[in-house]
Design a protein around this nucleic acid. Sequence first.
RNA 1: GCACUCGUAGCUCAGCUGGAUAGAGCACUCGCCUUCUAAGCGAGCGGUCUCAGGUUCGAAUCCUGACGGGUGUACCA
Length: 565
Amino acid sequence: MKLKSHINQIIKDAFSKAGIDTEPMSVTEATKAEFGDYQFNGAMALAKKLGKNPRQIAEDIVAHLDLTGVVTKAEIAGPGFINLWINPLWIAEQCQHALGDERLGVNKRETPIKVVVDYSGPNMAKQMHVGHLRSTIIGDTLANLLEFLGDEVIRQNHIGDWGTQFGMLIAYLEEMGEDGSVSLKDLEQFYKDAKGRFDADEDFANKARAYVVKIQSGDTHCLELWQKFIDISLGHCEEVYKKLGVKLTREDVKAESFYNEDLVKVVEDLKRQGTLQESDGAQCVFLEGEEIPVIVQKADGGYLYATTDLAALRYRANVLGAKRISYVVDARQGEHFKQVFRVAKETGFVPEDVKLEHIAFGTMMDKGGKPFKTRDGGTVKLIDLLDEAVVKAKNTIKDQEGYSEEEVEELAKIIGIGAVKYADLSINRESNYIFNWDKMLSFEGNTSLYMQYAYARIQSIFRRFEGEIKGNIIIGDALEHRLSVMLLRFEDILDRAAIDAAPNQITTYLYELVTLFMRFYEQNPILKEGVDEQTKMSRLALADLTAKTIKQGLDILGIEVVDKL
RNA sequence: GCACUCGUAGCUCAGCUGGAUAGAGCACUCGCCUUCUAAGCGAGCGGUCUCAGGUUCGAAUCCUGACGGGUGUACCA
């Protein structure tokens, strides 16, 4: 239900009937309940243009407003605000429709596009650490969201599987022989050991350097070892993805090495276009107004990540056919993407109509506002963090007697992982974010547990009810009215969140929705005695739609719900 | 130095396509369980939206500048 568009259309109709030859600005949600459901603030802005006073304009608009359908009441307030009330009968009807629809009334895009979402991008030489968390879950959410809205989403996991350190790792893997896969279990340690050998033993170091050259020249034996290493390493990542409930699979992997053969062509094409300049021996693209050039080939002939990114952009736009390419990457790489995107567009590597965006996010901080580290200053492994979340979640479960051990375990997973993800997604992605166990595992405030609790409460009602909902939704009071309108706003929220790539708009919405529902739950009894049948059915339907909306919203965020909490 | 980014209640954060008296949660004070999960709900307390200009009928929101924090600044990714 594109609620806002409906209201906007009514305003637009009033404009043309009133002979106002301007595109009206969009209505906005009313800032207060007493101001109705939506408000139109455009009368004031027109005052100068039309040479009339804003209240007169407002009156003119209201006089031509169709109050027989979606909107039933309009009031002019203050300097020329137009407050609008939506018809409760219409709201009820729309909620009813949403309830009967598996998409909850959310339309699929009329003109879906292909979107590449590039996220996670772990380095194969090391284990995934907290630095990968935000990209992985924000990216997955964005992909889920666009998919739900009907776009054709192509997930891309641009893993780092190429580079000098792999020579060292492969040399070490070969040295370990069959035991390699065993010691690889702890990649972090494996890396350290390999580095230790590299630093201590000159022969080993030379072998490692030779391997780099061999891999790059396509030596079969080396490539086999390399492939083995990547497989095992990727297996580690998949373990993390599984725990996190992230949908990335091997199908989505397009590693750095995938673009290797294209790198020469990228440089050649740039050269042919005359956009390349040599500087200190390196091949560079100098952009107007930019101090630092984009280097695509080092003085020693090697390629850089800008080169790979250009190759990837070209592939995604031209081979995959993406019209929107979203990079969910740390904000610190803002400059890099700004430049690479410019080069891609200015050289025509990527067509003009393709939207390139860097979905930047801030750094994860500890309670003290410092970058998140272990006690001894090391990086926190993602798998450890997630395991800890599950342990902590287990401790928050109050009534453990009510469950079997397996159930507690399962519940703890859902709660713990959900808490970590929700905490991250609920904050404006561009700002740094303070990681706080106590806060994220709290039932109070804007947390996943609060949402899951609300969902479980509703399911509890249905466990007791055990019937079938018959009859229609009837908006009985102001609270039910607000709750219903909130439910109908779901699509508007998702649309906006998709445009801005802002998961926190979804969490803010869910929080508002759940808060309203909790009030409704307290004030409007459903199964208690003395509630007449019609009211009971209507309230059950509202509760049901609320639960389904919470579930769908959390599902987009990659968070599960439970029937009992 | 230059560029980017952030600065909203004691703390953590919403709000930023300009709109009415700036909103939540935590903390603190108080009230509500013989009836649908009180892990809840309600009420109170708490603000020169960093500062100074500007644009505007109207600015937390847009522009300029200052101050403060963070980040980045050519052959790592």
